[in-house]
């Protein structure tokens, strides 16, 4: 019976469907829009990453061969450290969203899906936090 409610956009027909309460129907609508939220989050993060990546590619190209002194001076500037913090947050968010779709597409077993997704999210959280803390430490120390 749920599938009828999710697909209609007429409020009155929600009420008619099996005498379901409007709050419950609304709840289903909210939860059913999860893929739509995911879709928008992926596109928005991608759009923000376009200009950020130009800065990032330019930076890593020149920093890949630089010595410790040069890199710390570069990263401890206000602009670069703020851009790096934003970049890390959005890039890890975008990565998790992308990996989630791949796991959903290619992993058929439900429990394997759940374990893999948990592993991806846990790794991304720990890695993102270490990167953020390191950037702040470099900013504070130099």
């Amino acid at each position: 019976m749920y599938k009828y409610i999710v697909n209609v956009d007429n409020v009155d027909s929600w009420r008619c469907a099996n005498n379901m309460k409007i709050s419950k129907a609304f709840h289903i609508l909210i939860s059913s829009s999860e893929p739509v939220k995911h879709w928008w989050a992926q596109r928005l993060s991608a759009a923000i990453l376009v200009p950020l990546n130009l800065w990032f590619i330019y930076s890593i190209t020149f920093m890949s061969k630089a010595n410790y002194e040069t890199v710390t001076v570069w990263l401890s500037s206000k602009t670069n450290s703020i851009l790096m913090l934003i970049f890390i947050l959005i890039i890890y968010y975008h990565a998790v969203l992308g990996l989630q779709v791949i796991i959903e597409d290619y992993v058929a077993t439900e429990w394997r899906k759940k374990i893999l997704l948990f592993f991806v999210k846990a790794t991304a959280t720990i890695a993102a936090l270490s990167a953020l803390i390191s950037t702040i430490v470099i900013f504070m120390e130099y």
Partner: peptide, 12 residues
């Protein structure tokens, strides 16, 4: 990006 993270941690 995991390598980028390692780079930042090593720097810190």
């Amino acid at each position: 990006i995991l390598l980028l993270t390692t780079w930042l941690v090593c720097l810190a």
